[in-house]
Amino acid sequence: MRGNNPHFSRSTVHHELIAGHHLQGYMESRYKTYRNFQTPFWIEGWALYWEMLLWDMQFPQSPEDRIGMLFWRMHRCARIIFSLNYHLGKWTPQECIDFLVDRVGHERANAEGEVRRSFVGGYSPLYQIAYMIGGLQFYALQRDLVGPGKWTMKQFHDAVLHENNIPVEMLRAILTQQPLKKDFKTNWRFYKLK
C-alpha cells in the first residue's frame, strides 16, 4: 500500500473511471460503434487530459493530494523515457526498474510491476508516449474551442465522446468542420513553437 496510498490513488481514480476510461468505454459502446479503430492517443490521451484538467480546476485540495497528482504526471513522463530506451535496446528491464525507483520514487515492487506490465502487456513501443501526446492534443483542442468561448466545456466533452475512438487530429477536423479529403495530410501543431 505504500506505493498506492490514498493520495496517489485519487488522480488514478479519475483516469480509470469517470471521466476517464470507464466513461470512454460507456460512450464508445453507444456512439459511432461502426468505427473499428483504436489508438492509445485517444484512449490514454483522454484519461490523462482529465488529470490535467482536474489539476487546473484545483481538484486536489490538500498538499498530499497535489503531490499525488504530480507523482502520477512525473510517472507518465518516466514511462516515455524507460519505454523508449528499452525498445531502442539501450536499457534492460532491470535498468528500467532502477530508473523508476531512483528517479521517480517508486517502491521497488511497484516499479517491477510497472515494467512487467509495459513489456509483457502487448503494448506497442509508442504506447507510453501516447498518454502525454494524446493528453496534450485534447488539452490544446479544448483550449482552441472552449477558450475563446466558441463552445462550453459540456459541449466540447459531449462532442468528443460522441465521435468515438479516432486520431485526435481527425477529431479536430470534424469538430472544426474542416473538409476531409482522401489525401488529407496532418499539419496541426497542438504545441507552441518558440
Rank of each mutant, 00 (worst) to 15 (best):
A111C: 04
E44N: 09
M1K: 12
Q142G: 03
Y139N: 06
Q142D: 10
R35D: 03
H162K: 14
H162N: 07
Q178C: 03
G20D: 05
R103P: 02
T33E: 12
N164F: 02
G68M: 05
R2G: 09
K185Y: 01
F190Y: 14
I129F: 11
S29N: 10
L23G: 05
D144C: 05
P60C: 11
K150M: 10
Y191D: 09
G20Y: 05
F82M: 04
F99Q: 00
T33P: 03
P179R: 14
N5L: 03
D65I: 04
L145S: 04
D183A: 06
R30I: 07
H162V: 00
R30N: 11
R116F: 09
T152C: 07
F41T: 15
R172M: 01
R108L: 00
A19K: 14
P167Q: 11
E163M: 07
R143E: 13
L70I: 08
E107A: 08
A109V: 05
E169P: 03
R108D: 00
P125L: 01
H22V: 13
N187R: 11
Q38Y: 13
P93N: 01
M74Q: 13
N36M: 12
L180T: 10
F71G: 02
F71L: 08
M153E: 15
Q94F: 06
S83N: 14
A173Q: 07
R143V: 08
E16Y: 01
I97T: 03
I18G: 11
F37W: 11
L171T: 01
M27E: 09
Y123W: 09
N5G: 06
D102Y: 06
N5K: 08
V101L: 02
M69C: 08
N164V: 04
R35W: 08
L53H: 12
E44G: 06
M69K: 05
I43T: 14
Q38L: 12
F37Y: 15
N36G: 05
L54M: 14
N187V: 05
L84E: 15
T152N: 02
P6G: 05
V168M: 07
I166F: 02
Q155M: 12
Y86P: 00
V104R: 04
T33M: 13
I129G: 06
L175C: 06
S9V: 11
D102H: 09
Q94R: 13
S9E: 12
L126S: 11
T12D: 12
M52L: 15
E95H: 07
G134N: 08
A140S: 14
K154H: 09
G68K: 06
D65T: 08
G45H: 03
A109P: 00
D65K: 13
V13H: 13
E114I: 04
R30C: 05
R35H: 05
F59C: 08
D56G: 14
F156A: 10
P167D: 12
M69I: 11
